[in-house]
Amino acid sequence: MNHSYSGNSSKYFIFFIIVFIFIFFESCSNNLPVKKSLRTSFELINQDSSKISFPDDFKGDITVMSFMYTNCPDVCPMTTNNLRMLQEQLKKDDIKGVQFVELSFDPDRDTPPILKKYADVRSIDEKNFQLLTGNKKVIDSLLKVMNIYAIPSDTINYDNGGFTYSFIHTDRITLIDKESRIRKEYKGSIVDEKEIIKDIESLD
């Protein structure tokens, strides 16, 4: 009787060990939970005035996405530069299948030619880096899906009586997997490049 009890204990022990090992390796192989699936596609335009369906046109690749406006002098260019540096590092590491996207939340001013100028002066390699703009309502809907806030504020008055405006906005980089699912979000202006590369590799 004792012998039978001991045998059952061993079986339970082995079963729990197997379950533990399975859970352990499963969590290590993909430790980024799905935050949201992007089910709707949004019709936008890139810096070359080409039509882009987001996220449909990016399916099959990992996408690193950020949000900006070109009249921003400080925070947004920091984010753009972080994406550019990340793009350079992935090239050096020979990591392929990653697209970079920056969405403007200021489509009234950020037309395709303006986005093109913004990219050109920064020597952005546009092979896998697109800047997107489009219809304001469409962009607002997409921002809502991406949980990004961008509110016109802080009017800047010029000495000659003119004025411009800036935005108060979310500072964000979003990592999207090959199946158009948001997997992780980071601060945009200050990033840990190694962390993002590690996360990209974990999705590959």
């Binding site: 002098p73 400080d74 925070v75 920091m78 806030y149 504020s153 802080d154 800047i156 935005f167 906005h169």
Partner: peptide, 29 residues
């Protein structure tokens, strides 16, 4: 968790001190 900017009319630099204009902080626009 949102970032914005506003005008600063003047900046005082205290005696024997430094003020840094740097990304994400003071800047000349």
């Amino acid at each position: 968790d949102m970032m914005g900017m506003r005008e600063v009319k003047s900046i005082i630099i205290q005696p024997n001190s430094s003020v840094e204009f740097k990304p994400g902080s003071y800047h000349v626009m």
